[in-house]
Design a protein around this nucleic acid. Sequence first.
DNA 1: CCTTTATAGTTGCACTTTGCAAATATAATC
DNA 2: GATTATATTTGCAAAGTGCAACTATAAAGG
Lengths: 149, 149
Amino acid sequence: MENARELFQIMTRRLGLLNKDCCSVSGINLSLAQSHLLHEVVRRDNPSMQQVAETLGTDVTTFSRQVQSLIKMDLVKKTPDPGDRRVFTLSLTEEGKRIAATIDQQMNSYLEEVFSYMTEFEKETVLRSVQLFNEAMGKSSRCCAPVTG
Amino acid sequence: MENARELFQIMTRRLGLLNKDCCSVSGINLSLAQSHLLHEVVRRDNPSMQQVAETLGTDVTTFSRQVQSLIKMDLVKKTPDPGDRRVFTLSLTEEGKRIAATIDQQMNSYLEEVFSYMTEFEKETVLRSVQLFNEAMGKSSRCCAPVTG
DNA sequence: CCTTTATAGTTGCACTTTGCAAATATAATC
DNA sequence: GATTATATTTGCAAAGTGCAACTATAAAGG
């Protein structure tokens, strides 16, 4: 078998995941962490800070500041939860939604371009593979944590 | 078709690529960038700083400092190129080789565990898909750069 | 109730990482 | 021999990080 690690190492690099600024939209530069934050807030329905921080595996204090900076950029809103006044609920501003959607489009268009070098069948295979792989990672006990030994 | 971006977003997150310290070996903690640096030096034969920096898409000045810190940790060696005295050639110390090999093992073992939730056929499909995808990214003009628009 | 304990979130601080601009040192060119 | 190009290193200043400590609210126990 091919060296699996080698394949994933190259993929990681080529996906540009090491780039500090992953996404730029109309003058706004976002880090990879910020784009994940936006993405996750869109996906969920008015999640609390804790929830999103935990999903992203970010320290809550760091997360708190990430949110602050996105609020300053007017992309994210923080709303006090009426049921529990300790909790703040996150949502995107109109601008935030626009930016998040644009990044989504850009990513998809980048992926589409990459897929254009494959046959339709290969593309479907790749997508199904990623899905399979994600599901398997979800089952793994070591999922989502740094590698340690 | 599934939302391709969504799939890759989750994969990125689950792969733990957002973690600051990706790899820990016997008390030594390495960042994702550092592990890529080691990996790339192993792969190539006594590459120059520039070469590796460019491959990794890192600013050379940042890269220079990353190397310095790995030298301090006694994982990397810098040797002046006899042919061109401006150039320094990178290699790993014995300890560096050991660490790099261990990280490689750990990653592979993590991947193996993930693959254990699939059939052998699925696993082979996934690996072939990643390979296909890497090749396609290599052909793309937008490969390896941050997403911009 | 009212005290204790738990939870959600924010700040202070010290440390690290980053990139740009500028500097140094060597090579190549004219 | 002077100019120009290349490889690498430093000086910043800005941004990101986690831990410990803090505030504010909620839940639990007597």
